[in-house]
Design a protein around this nucleic acid. Sequence first.
DNA 1: AAGTGGTCTAGACCACCCG
DNA 2: GGGTGGTCTAGACCACTTT
Lengths: 256, 256
Amino acid sequence: MASPHRPVVAVSKACALSGDAHLPIYRRLYQALAEQIASGALKPGDSLPAEADLARLYAIAPGTVRRAMEDLAAKGLIDRVHGRGTFVRRPNFDNAMLRFLRFRDADGAVIHPESRIVLRRVIPTPAHLPAKLATVERTVLHMVRHRLWDGAVRLVEDIYLPAHRFGRLLELSPAEIGPLLYPAYERWCGQMVYVIEEELAMIEATDDDAATLGLAPGSLVVSIERVAKDATGCAMEWRLSRAEAKRFRYRVSSDA
Amino acid sequence: MASPHRPVVAVSKACALSGDAHLPIYRRLYQALAEQIASGALKPGDSLPAEADLARLYAIAPGTVRRAMEDLAAKGLIDRVHGRGTFVRRPNFDNAMLRFLRFRDADGAVIHPESRIVLRRVIPTPAHLPAKLATVERTVLHMVRHRLWDGAVRLVEDIYLPAHRFGRLLELSPAEIGPLLYPAYERWCGQMVYVIEEELAMIEATDDDAATLGLAPGSLVVSIERVAKDATGCAMEWRLSRAEAKRFRYRVSSDA
DNA sequence: AAGTGGTCTAGACCACCCG
DNA sequence: GGGTGGTCTAGACCACTTT
């Protein structure tokens, strides 16, 4: 809110918060910081200015800065450490979205698998896809990804994306895409995942999947069908994953 | 402030917040309100006192009350409505809780299974249980429930409950308990489930389970371990369910 | 008009981490 | 000791709903 008596402080440069003026200040500050993180201006591990400094910089109250910081921390974008400071969080599997899918090793410990994209191409939209994915285009981007640990392929994924929003992925090297797709969607395509819906079922492996996963033909695999949606609820990704049933472990909580 | 069941409190005399004195005030207020919800003193739909009234009642600052209310709202225990007030939220079993567990018939349609409680007894607390269930008692209520459709047992459940809070279930007829347990917990024992955590895994069936489910020995079954918690986060039910893997279908959304 | 929650301000003091 | 975030206070004004 426009304070009637703005402090006459000699802050070298009192920045104005851009964005829609009808949004709360803490929300605009959240956006400003989130955009700096998304754009790479603030990189993982970087420290943010202290609350008091941000308050001076934008000429707003410390409590308002605090609200924005707490929201960023709740969303998992930053870490706040008592007595040390505030830091951009390293993207990892603890992200709220990715907490669903877990595999266990012999001791039940969580595993962070290697990612290997084995196919990227644009294909005519399969007939079954428009029911799942919000697209009216005639073509979609199709990717096949393997995820590995202990030197073997443990998970096979078919991923379908609207070609017009995700075509950029075709030009990138695997290293540029990185091991996690959702951060890559955000970084290279400006697409952020807000909601995930999944459905699990046990089915018999296809011959191809059995061969890829190193299983006997007809083995039971868990099939995970996932729809990822953006902030407007628009389905932006459809994904079908298969993995050996016996290795699978899945944890979910109703309180997000 | 005009709620009929709420005793009119003299504003002149402030109440003291119980609980560990080293906890933050907003945390103790959160606990106090969560306990009133969990115990049934505040029932779903009831309105809470206004922020300013709570602040006067406990002789704390409005901002501190607000923090507790925001946390309760984030946890899903209350609804805050701008201009109207704050209300105890009713956990809805149909949409939020039970949407997890689904079985499919031949056409993939959702099934509403029959419920058959085949065992109810009080037993000495098993050694593994205190790690899962918040109980220090030496006995727990153990129930075994079968769920059936198409004339066969499709799901076997072992359910463990603190004996002192759920002993009443021993006296009831199956008809009085009904086909759904959580509404029965609420109706007969005054216990409401607010949070569910589940973990799925694929394991080989025990001989007993295989026989009950009509499967070949050593068939793969899905094992679902569930912890149900009340408004205070206290684990009130521990449940282990098994079902034929091939018939299993599980749906979940990060929306919650 | 009255009452409620939503936003914002401008401080205070404390607990924690580091140099 | 100096800087950081964590907690808490005591108000202000606004937006919304109901009477």
